[in-house]
């Protein structure tokens, strides 16, 4: 695999340990260029550790991570030229004014689109002379997004981007991302709890649970194989289903292999599941 064809992100059998605690256990995932990958998981599932390691900010205890084919721990500085990051907790210095922050930021990158950046700032209604710490949480993320996109990154990493954003800000954020996707074919990796938000955007979904990547699948395939089936009474035999749960006077069950599944005759209702419902089923089952 040459660097030109290498996936944007490739984590190979990555284990991350803090002392005796295992945060990520032998995880492998691959994000194809131009695709959108949503990494889901409860708090403490290992997402943040994995993200920090994907960015070369901390080393993996085992396994390798390559961005665009290059090892991220040893090539971090050059790779970051091609990566835009909107972190969960904005890490820009709080006392720094936005305009100074911008000047500093732009001096570190080869590419900088000043017009586009200023346009975005205006759209977000952010005054350049404001101190970064004085901005609202949502505005901080918008500034970080604008800064990140102004450098024309090939990979955009959004770490819980909608946390703390109101509906309008959330909408505008996704609009920006979609525009970038359409215009430049960037690769996007989103970690989030807002499953509804990524449901229409993600090409591929990964679910982390207790440090393990329990699911790594195309969203479409995932949604096509999960169904919630409701019965009037308790079914006697079930093929390859999941836990049977009470529902009203009857019961319901989650089917995870719907295409091969033979529907019993007494099924009252077969309905598709939202990504959120699938997530709960997947992680709840393993709990």
């Amino acid at each position: 695999m040459t660097n030109e064809t290498a996936p944007a992100v490739f984590a190979d059998a990555v284990t991350i340990r803090y002392g005796s605690k295992v945060a990520v256990d032998n995880g492998t995932l691959s994000v194809a260029r131009g695709s959108v990958y949503a990494l889901l998981g409860r708090n403490g599932a290992g997402k943040s550790s994995l993200v920090r390691t994907l960015l070369g900010q901390q080393p993996a205890s085992a396994g390798t991570i390559r961005l665009f084919g290059e090892d991220v721990w040893t090539h971090r500085a050059t790779l970051m030229e091609r990566v835009g990051i909107v972190p969960e907790d904005a890490d820009a210095p709080p006392d720094m004014r936005v305009d100074k922050l911008t000047r500093f930021w732009s001096s570190l990158y080869a590419r900088w689109d000043v017009t586009l950046f200023n346009e975005r700032l205006e759209r977000f209604h952010i005054a350049p002379r404001t101190k970064f710490g004085d901005l609202s949480k949502g505005q901080k993320k918008q500034v970080m997004l604008a800064l990140s996109l102004a450098t024309s990154p090939e990979l955009l990493l959004l770490d819980d981007p909608t946390l703390g954003l109101d509906v309008v800000a959330r909408k505008s954020l996704f609009e920006e991302v979609i525009a970038e996707l359409a215009d430049r074919g960037i690769t996007v990796l989103i970690t989030t709890h807002d499953l509804g938000g990524v449901e229409t955007i993600a090409d591929r979904v990964g679910v982390m649970h207790d440090g393990r990547l329990v699911l790594d699948e195309e969203l479409e395939t995932l949604k096509s194989r999960f169904r919630r089936v409701r019965f009037a009474a308790r079914p006697v035999a079930l093929a390859n289903g999941s836990n049977v749960r009470a529902w009203g006077s009857g019961s319901e069950v989650v089917v995870s292999n719907f295409p091969e599944w033979n529907e019993p005759a007494d099924a009252v209702e077969v309905s598709p599941m939202s990504l959120e419902e699938i997530f709960i089923a997947v992680t709840g089952e393993e709990a």
Binding site: G34, S35, V36, K171, F174, E175, I178, A179, L181, A182, D183, T200, I201, A202, D203
Partner: peptide, 12 residues
């Protein structure tokens, strides 16, 4: 681009 933005879906 426009349809993706207005529908809020992946342009792909």
């Amino acid at each position: 681009r426009d349809l993706a933005k207005s529908l809020r879906v992946n342009p792909n």
